[in-house]
Design a binder for these strands. Structure first.
Lengths: 199, 199
DNA sequence: CCTTCAGGTTAACGAGCGCTAACCCCCCTG
DNA sequence: CAGGGGGGTTAGCGCTCGTTAACCTGAAGG
């Protein structure tokens, strides 16, 4: 099943560099010439791979939202019938942390540049995000049945804020090690949920 | 002591509208003409009040960082000797939540547009932010003496992420009421800290 | 009553942007 | 060996942006 150990295609290079630049300086703050330069070609050469700058952002944001949602669905399915909802919640948290730690530019773009999208693309991203949130809300309310739905939704958004804070934790070197950071974030997320769920 | 029930000056109007627009569409996504239109004057009229667009952003960001820091210092001083560190931590959390709920555009700008500043201004903001974080870290480690400093700093940043998530909680109408939201955020913050401090 | 000045106006400039046009070159295939 | 297309190049267009210049106006002060 050729699990893509291949060299990255030019398209993928472009997307990766564009994500980094957009995250660093904002969508409007980056010119196509810079994106081109980052992959070794110059400016208008990008238009052989994308119809425009907007399309790069759209593909990035849809890709992120989709892969978060897909990952969560898979984790929910893998849990099966016997495992408790607490295990699923932990799995959700773990997946989100992996994403936040491994794809920091994408996590940044995800809640920062959404409004720069064309209407149709933005609707698509919003819908994927909403589904993702609903999965979390469902599992959270299984773990804490006393939790009302609006409170659960707010709690989920807040924990996303907590988990997505990794870009602010200093440059990748200053972190106390990936595993340690992941564990810290995980415990804080569970603690935050517990504080609002057990009452 | 004339607590400023006066009408807002033109400068203040401009800053407020600029903050809203920058938060909505990003610094580079807003033109000076739009900012002018938002306060009823047109484009270049702004230059009677500010030397340039950058200066507006700089004044906003420095103002935010300074008032967060000043507020925290005041709360620390007010606590006096007898009150425990837990009370101070609660006071910090409460102050930050007030800010996040009442000045949502500013909180958004605060961690989103910092890199658009001139070097000198950015350094100033960073220094204020660092001092603010250090106050939190100090109090947090008094509450949880077992907590190592790097972990404490990460925890503080993460809780900022949690508290600053309010802009994502839907438009001001859909929130379950300010007091309820504030209480929810407060409990989650304490829960997150507790989960990493008690061990 | 004349002056001054704060706080506006419109016109216009220069730079930078996203994007298109026109061209080129190499590699692959029949 | 012809030719065709994928993937580049540079030149340049049209637009928008931040900023400046030049001008105007109404109210306050001597």
């Amino acid at each position: 099943m050729a699990t893509r150990t291949d060299a990255p295609t030019r398209r993928e290079q472009i997307l990766k560099e564009a994500a980094r630049l957009f995250a660093e300086r904002g969508f409007h703050g980056v010119g196509v010439d810079e994106i081109g330069a980052a992959v070794g070609i110059s400016g208008p050469g990008l238009y052989r791979h994308f119809p425009g700058k907007d399309a790069m952002l759209a593909e990035l944001l849809i890709g992120i939202s989709d892969s978060l949602l897909t990952g969560a669905k898979r984790r929910l399915a893998e849990a099966g019938e016997e495992t408790g909802p607490g295990v699923v919640l932990d799995s959700f948290i773990e997946g989100h942390i992996d994403f936040a730690l491994d794809d920091r530019p994408l996590i940044t773009l995800h809640d920062r540049e959404l409004d720069r999208l064309r209407d149709a693309d933005r609707k698509m991203v919003r819908q994927l995000q909403r589904q993702y949130v609903e999965l979390w809300v469902g599992v959270l309310r299984e773990v804490y049945p006393a939790l009302a739905e609006p409170a659960a939704r707010s709690a989920v958004h807040s924990v996303f804020g907590l988990l997505n804070s990794t870009p602010h934790l200093g440059r990748p070197g200053s972190l106390p090690g990936r595993a340690v950071t992941a564990s810290l974030l995980h415990r804080m997320a569970r603690g935050a949920f517990a504080a609002v769920g057990e009452e």
